Simulated scan of single mutants.
Amino acid sequence: MVTRTPDNTTPRSTRYLFVLGLVAMGLGFLLLLLPVTDAAMRPVGAVALLFGILLVGSYFLGRLKAEMSADNRAAEPTWRKPAHGSAGYGSLPVSDAPVAGARGALARPAVAAPAQVPQAALLPLPPAPPPAAPAIAVPASWTLALFDRMSAQQFDAVCEALFAQSGFETRCQSHGATGGVTIWLYSRHAQQGKDSPVAVALCKQWPGQPVGVRELHPLLELMASRQLKRGTCATSAICTDNARKFAKYNGINLLDRQAVLDLIARRSPVQQQALLALAQGS
Results as ranks from 00 to 15, higher is better:
Lys245Leu: 07
Gln227Met: 05
Cys233Met: 08
Glu215Ile: 08
Leu220Val: 07
Ala224Val: 11
Lys245Trp: 06
Leu219Pro: 06
Lys245Tyr: 00
Ser236His: 03
Arg214Leu: 04
Ser236Tyr: 03
Ala234His: 01
Thr232Ala: 08
Val213Asn: 00
Ile238Gly: 14
Lys229Phe: 02
Ala224Phe: 10
Arg214Asn: 05
Ile238His: 15
Gly231Ser: 08
Ala243Lys: 08
Thr235Val: 15
Lys245Glu: 00
Cys233Trp: 09
Ala237Asn: 09
Ala237Phe: 09
Glu221Arg: 15
Arg226His: 14
Gly212Glu: 08
Lys245Thr: 09
Gln227Asp: 02
Arg214Cys: 01
Gly212Asp: 04
Leu216Glu: 00
Ile238Ser: 15
Leu222Arg: 15
Leu228Cys: 04
Gly231Leu: 03
Arg244Asp: 03
Ala234Pro: 00
Gly212Cys: 03
Glu215Asn: 11
Leu222Val: 04
Glu215Cys: 07
Leu222Trp: 10
Ala237Met: 06
Leu222Phe: 07
Leu228Arg: 07
Gly231Glu: 05
Ala224Met: 10
Glu221Ser: 12
Gly231Tyr: 04
Asn242His: 12
Arg230Gln: 12
Arg214Ser: 10
Cys239His: 10
Gly212Ser: 12
Gly212Trp: 10
Val213Pro: 01
Ile238Phe: 11
Met223Leu: 11
Arg244Ser: 09
Ala243Pro: 07
Val213Gly: 00
Thr235Pro: 13
Ser236Phe: 08
Arg244Phe: 04
His217Arg: 15
Gly212Arg: 13
Thr232Lys: 05
Gln227Arg: 12
Thr235Cys: 15
Gly231Lys: 02
Leu220Pro: 03
Thr240Met: 07
Glu221Leu: 10
Pro218Trp: 04
Leu222His: 12
Gly231Cys: 07
Leu216Ser: 00
Arg244Glu: 08
Lys245Ser: 06
Ala237Ser: 15
Glu221Asn: 13
Thr232Phe: 01
Leu219Met: 02
Gln227Trp: 02
Ala234Asp: 00
Arg244Tyr: 02
Asp241Met: 14
Gln227Val: 03
Thr235Trp: 11
Gln227Cys: 03
Thr232Asn: 02
Thr240Asn: 08
Ser236Asn: 08
Arg214Gly: 02
Arg230Asp: 09
Ile238Gln: 14
Ala234Val: 09
Val213His: 02
Arg244Gly: 04
Ile238Arg: 14
Lys229Thr: 06
Leu222Pro: 07
